[in-house]
Amino acid sequence: MNLLFSSDSLLNEAGGQSQAIFDLSDELKKKKISHGIYTSKNNGLNQMNYNLFNEIKNKDLIHNFGIWSMFHIYNYYLAKRNKKPLIISPLGMMEPWPLSQKKIKKYLAYSIYQKKILDNCDFIHATSKMEADNLLKLGIKSKIEFIPHGTNLNYTVPDEKYKFSLSKGRKILLFLSRFDNKKGILELIKQFNKINNKDWMLLISSYENDNYLKAKKEFKDNKNIYFFGKSNLENKKKLYSISDFFVLPSYSENFGLAIMESLSYSCPVLTSSATPWTHLHNSSGLVFNDVKKDLNNSLKNVFALSDHDIIKFKNNCHNDLKDYKWEKISNDYIELYKKTLNKY
């Protein structure tokens, strides 16, 4: 088989979307599965500057990541014109919370073209059971396949000297994700600032967009909130490994790649029930229901944990990822591709 992965953005600022595609690509390379990647915003990677028409024409199957934009409409059109199998990963864009944003615009787009595209592709790929269930509620006709993202376990030894240089002896609560209201980051900063526990610092690593810079200026006097800026791969490894807890208080996540990444470094997680990670509660993390109502108390619960409690959470992290290892997940993707090709 010869596959094409297409996405309208592979910029690092796009968050987990680009990482998920590149990670899947790396795993398929190990299994000698031929594939290419096409994007409209290509990070300056010359190997991706292909003509989409020719790429689709010369591939056996198209796996398109994302919906709504003209890029994805064009993908659908070219796949149908060339009679190529098409799998679509909506990447959480059909979840209730994002659908409630710009509601009228999305309703019109869904009615005019997006429903037709989703109804007429070969499979829709959901990354969590929660996402699959929400897609079913919309009455989409295409078959839905649930395959989560995969990970490899990491055993990075924490650099305690580096940790102390950042935290000055405090425990670290890490936020490492896009600085976007969807992620609950503004509410997190507000509640952390209100509690102002001197034994903990909130370390925020994110791309420095306008909202990031505004918050950094607003909370510059709180020395327990540290705006780290964006992280490269080496920085991410260090930050996950030295942090005592990771926090992602999202209003909506179809998967939450950063949560899985944190667990892979044995860093326990505080997150909301709007993510598909509720099974972590009291095992490798804590889960709360409502961002506005419950985040404050949940932060206090984390701050009240003893060192022994945190170590227990850390020791459970890898076990809670046993169903997400790439060895299994990559085979699930390959089976989906084979099943799709067998329809033709």
Rank of each mutant, 00 (worst) to 15 (best):
K103W: 12
K83V: 13
K163E: 03
Y251H: 07
S262K: 01
L24K: 15
K217F: 09
I259R: 00
D332E: 15
A14P: 08
R81F: 13
L91I: 14
E327R: 08
N211V: 15
I242G: 00
A304T: 13
K338H: 09
E253T: 01
N134P: 10
S177W: 02
I140Y: 01
N289K: 11
N58W: 08
V269R: 00
K339I: 10
N254K: 05
L280C: 01
F255R: 03
H279N: 11
N193Q: 07
L286F: 00
E218R: 08
E327T: 11
L153A: 06
L299H: 03
S272H: 02
I185F: 05
K230R: 11
T39L: 08
A132Q: 12
L263H: 01
P98F: 09
A215Q: 15
F53S: 09
I172A: 02
S89A: 15
F65I: 13
E218Y: 05
F179Q: 07
A215L: 13
S9T: 11
W326N: 14
Q101V: 15
N42W: 07
N152T: 15
P158E: 04
S283T: 10
Y107G: 09
N46W: 11
M130D: 12
I329T: 11
N54Y: 15
I117G: 02
G16M: 07
K194W: 05
E253C: 00
L239T: 05
F5L: 07
S264L: 01
K338P: 06
N197V: 10
P158C: 02
K141G: 04
Y76N: 12
I189F: 01
M94L: 15
N222K: 05
D307P: 05
L86G: 07
V302S: 00
L233H: 11
S128G: 07
K141S: 08
K103S: 14
L86H: 05
N301S: 13
K198M: 07
F123C: 12
N209Y: 04
N342L: 09
I33E: 12
T151S: 06
K163M: 03
S6A: 14
N120M: 06
L135H: 05
N154R: 05
S298K: 00
L299T: 09
L336V: 12
A14Q: 14
N43M: 11
L239P: 04
K84A: 08
T151N: 05
Y76S: 11
K115R: 15
T151K: 03
F255S: 03
M94H: 11
G15W: 04
G66E: 13
I329G: 10
S25T: 11
P85K: 02
R81K: 15
Y207F: 14
D294Y: 02
M1N: 08
F53V: 10
Y344S: 13
L4M: 05
D8K: 06
F288G: 04
S264N: 01
N342E: 13
M130W: 06
K163F: 02
S7Q: 06
N331P: 06
D133R: 13
K217G: 06
K238D: 10
P90K: 09
